[in-house]
Design a protein around this nucleic acid. Structure first.
Lengths: 341, 341
DNA sequence: GGTAAAAATTAGATCGATCTAAAAGATCGC
DNA sequence: GCGATCTTTTAGATCGATCTAATTTTTACC
């Protein structure tokens, strides 16, 4: 079999010539313009098929203001929470004929800045971004300087403005506290206290407010690290103290599962001796033993909302900024079953 | 504050004029060519900074054969295994100044074909693809037709050829069987038997071969579904049968964790009454209770290898195809501890 | 049949870079 | 001082589409 020679690509002009029309007409056909008479359209489409034409969107982008391309900059792709979110973004993009660049800042503002610059050079229409820990206003300044429309997800930079989508962490935690109180728990601790970014602060604040609401002491907080581990020494100190906790609300499901494992190693019977509540409702929460009660933050829905919001922003750059806070509902499972059950 | 007028973008010609050189010279400077005399380079760089020039890679792509863009088409982004893989791809891309489109086929060959077409239109240099269940040779034909270099990861289409990266499932399972035998298990079942794609077949084959090697019966196979659930009825039938299994090797960690939960509900003490081994070594395997013994398939490394291989292919399109099979090692944890411990 | 209005098509400029091939400038030996 | 060589810079064509403004064709109506 002979190798085909230089397979030089077919362009619109070739198609136009084959169909006996002008380049402009062929262009209108590929874009599905209603201006073209049906018979002509047919002829052009036929020529396209014959020649194996492939639309060169890159060339089109040079003339148009939109590229049908967005960037998704996440602080840690490897986190399952973010993969659900990514899937949500992809759902909306697929429906809108948009493709999505993905970039992983790994919680490094420098890498994040580099990625944004790169995305800008590739002419993305806008970005969805979960700011890396340590991001500050220079992030938004960079975006402004690059005139890059953006939607922040989950976290926002301090004092930042602009479109934003997140879950209602505080009210989710309030529901969790109420549930614990209703099932007879009084000594509730929070595992994974941090103030590294807005989402962490929101959770901790939510905990303090909810505890105050129920007039319970809110001083049992175990520090978290990296969003997936907590201070084990501090936890053990509380567990072995004179007034140990009888339940815990965790920063996220990852920590909650680690905590469950920790407690089980120490002989606790979960749901009975001790109630554990996580956050996010990752698939693994339902599959754990015992199944984990958790505050569902709906990452997929957040992704969908962010992608939709970004498209709205692109269509109407001057619309007022929008901050979407999606409800966070409590999913009750065995890890927090009432003691009397 | 007055809104700035039409912020019309600065292009290379503007930069060139400001620096008192030609467009061609400015172009050589942005590309870091050594042809330019240092003082001239300085002048141009200074002008770029002054004017806030942003390189338009999209325009450059029109003339060049490479766009520094690749596509990553996954069968299910939401799967944590794939997010690790994505992170690995991103590591290599970040180092190579390449950006990556992500697309989720959700195991639908149709959606997959659509996504590939879209990526092609955006002129990606190549794709890394984990073929959706049901993909056949038409996938490779499509890629060929679009003259799109590709690397398959984890799975390959039947009879397919071309670059490929995966883990050594069979030898991983062999190690798992040997470990179980050495710790006194004889009645080993496989949970998650499927033949929907090459990776599933490879695991099942590996199980049968390993069992034959140890002259053990290999007839206990529980069917899997979707890569994350198994046939619970069939499992219970085996557990309650006359010759119940004493251990299980699972298709992946997700199923293994579900199985652990299942067995714990039924009163088994894991690691003692029953040994469970998973596959992949997701972070959650180590965090489970008891910690899960698993066959580490190193998704991040697979992603890195695939991205590296794709770059090699792009640099030398005629190099012989390569099939990289990364080792899969057994990570022993408490879920398969010896009975006598 | 003639003309106005509507529909369909098109020529040519344009987006912002790269590439080729050649020109201009600097350096050197003798 | 002069050609040869090396270094540095550049003009102009080009990639493959879209866009504007105009032209051509068709339809409608009296």
């Amino acid at each position: 079999m002979k190798k085909s020679p230089a397979p030089q690509p077919v362009n619109l002009l070739d198609v136009a010539r084959a169909a006996g029309v002008s380049r402009a007409t062929a262009s209108l056909v590929v874009r599905g313009s209603p201006l073209i008479a049906p018979p002509t359209r047919e002829r052009v489409l036929e020529a396209m098929k014959q020649l194996g034409y492939i639309y060169n969107r890159g060339a089109a982008n040079l003339r148009q203001s939109r590229t049908h391309t967005i960037g998704l900059v996440l602080s840690n792709i490897a986190n399952p929470f973010f993969s659900e979110l990514t899937a949500g973004v992809d759902d909306v993009n697929d429906a809108n004929d948009v493709v999505c660049f993905i970039a992983n800042s790994v919680e490094s503002p420098e890498r994040q800045a580099r990625q944004i610059q790169r995305l800008r050079e590739h002419n993305v229409d806008g970005v969805i971004i979960c700011p890396a820990i340590g991001s500050n206003d220079t992030l938004l300044e960079d975006l402004q300087r690059l005139s890059l429309p953006y939607v922040q997800v989950l976290r926002h930079v301090p004092y930042g403005s602009g479109d934003y989508v997140a879950a209602d962490y505080a009210s989710g935690i309030e529901k969790a506290v109420r549930h614990l109180v209703e099932t007879g728990r009084q000594k509730i601790m929070f595992v994974g206290g941090m103030s590294v970014h807005s989402a962490a602060v929101a959770r901790l604040d939510g905990f303090h407010r909810a505890m105050a609401l129920h007039q319970l002491p809110d001083d049992m907080v175990v520090a978290g690290k990296w969003g997936n581990t907590y201070d084990e020494v501090e936890l053990d100190r509380l567990l072995l103290g004179s007034n140990p906790p009888d339940s815990a609300i965790c920063y996220n499901d990852i920590m909650a599962l680690a905590l469950m494992s920790h407690l089980q190693r120490r002989g606790y019977t979960l749901g009975d001796d001790f109630a554990v509540i996580g956050m996010d409702d990752l698939p693994q929460a339902a599959a754990a033993y015992p199944p984990l009660t958790t505050i569902a933050t709906n990452p997929r829905m957040i992704g969908q909302a962010a992608a939709t919001l970004l498209q709205k922003r692109l269509e109407a750059p001057d619309r007022p900024t929008e901050r979407i806070i999606l409800p966070a509902n409590l999913v009750i499972r065995a890890s927090s079953e009432t003691r009397t059950s």
